[in-house]
């Protein structure tokens, strides 16, 4: 029956949104990748390389300078701290939290999901039911509760966010592993007597990695937004240390008078999240070979 003609597929294929030319496709991967790299470099190297004042302990005489003032490109806040410096240092915290949370999520969630699918049976059912419980939580709500219980700090923020990023990653890993199990090479390896840990590390992990990495790019954006929300509510990175969330929150009070205080960190947040989202999207397209 292999000769079944597929006229419809032929027609549809022809009409599929025109496959973009090679350069356009490369652009849609490299622009967000470049943007992401730029954000990382600016935040981690910028304050070291450029002559930028410290983010805290500013001179009160220089308080509330408007944007584009000499020496303070984006102006200063009411405490006289340089806003550009605070954004870059705040970005460090955000990116550090996002990367750590996603690494923990990938490692724990990925292994949990892959193992769950690989072992199958009762173990799988139990793991999935527990994850269902975690997923049923409005994660921001419980993250708030956790952050409050443990007190606002960088470590606690990471702990709380990582905890709730695990189930989603685990689900993706599980689904990917399940479809992988069907493939002949898995059966072949199993029949060859490969031990389970080797199956997991040599055969499963490399094959589900693209899907997990794509997912975690979107997760980076989410974590940055939620971390911002925690800081915004005063439950994330404690003031006076800068974070985009607490900068936006501080600026809210004088929103009508000095909107700059809100606009700059908001813009930083937006650009960073957009870069991660576009990168995730481009990687998905790239790996699905469309």
């Amino acid at each position: 029956m292999a000769a079944v003609d597929a006229p419809v597929a032929t027609v549809a294929e022809v009409d599929a949104p025109r496959p973009r030319r090679a350069w356009a496709r490369r652009l849609s991967l490299w622009v967000p990748a470049g943007l992401t790299a730029f954000v990382f470099l600016a935040c981690f190297l910028g304050p070291v390389v450029l002559p930028i004042p410290a983010p805290v302990g500013g001179n009160v005489l220089e308080s509330s300078l408007p944007s584009f003032s000499p020496g303070h490109l984006l102006g200063t806040d009411p405490n006289g701290n340089d806003i550009l410096s605070r954004i870059l240092h705040g970005g460090r915290a955000s990116l550090f939290v996002a990367v750590t949370v996603n690494l923990i999520g990938l490692a724990v969630g990925g292994l949990l999901g892959a193992l769950s699918a690989y072992i199958g049976g009762k173990v799988d059912t139990v793991i999935m039911r527990v994850l269902d419980v975690l997923i049923a939580f409005p994660s921001l709500v419980l993250t708030l509760a956790v952050a409050q219980s443990l007190g606002p700090s960088l470590t606690n923020t990471i702990f709380a966010l990582a905890f709730f990023s695990i189930p989603a990653v685990a689900r993706v890993a599980r689904a990917a592993t399940l479809s992988l199990r069907e493939l002949p090479f898995m059966t072949a390896a199993e029949l060859a007597g490969t031990p389970w840990w080797r199956m997991l590390l040599r055969h499963i992990v490399p094959n589900i990695a693209p899907q997990l990495i794509t997912f975690s790019m979107l997760g980076m954006g989410t974590v940055i937004v939620i971390e911002g929300a925690l800081s915004f509510l005063g439950l994330g990175i404690p003031a006076p240390n800068p974070s985009w969330g607490n900068m936006i929150s501080e600026g809210q009070a004088s929103l009508s008078a000095t909107p700059d205080l809100v606009i700059w960190p908001s813009l930083a947040l937006f650009v960073t999240v957009l870069a991660f989202n576009l990168l995730g999207e481009a990687l998905r397209t790239h790996w699905s070979g469309r």
């Binding site: 929300a229 915004f232 809210q252 809100v262 999240v273």
Partner: peptide
């Protein structure tokens, strides 16, 4: 598909998904 309105709506929704709601709230207030 792929005409002006479609592309416009896609640009709006992709960037809209990258705006944190608390930022959006402040912009709306402003």
């Amino acid at each position: 598909p792929n005409r002006l309105f479609d592309r416009l709506s896609m640009v709006v929704s992709v960037s809209g998904l990258s705006v944190a709601n608390y930022v959006l709230a402040l912009i709306l207030v402003l």
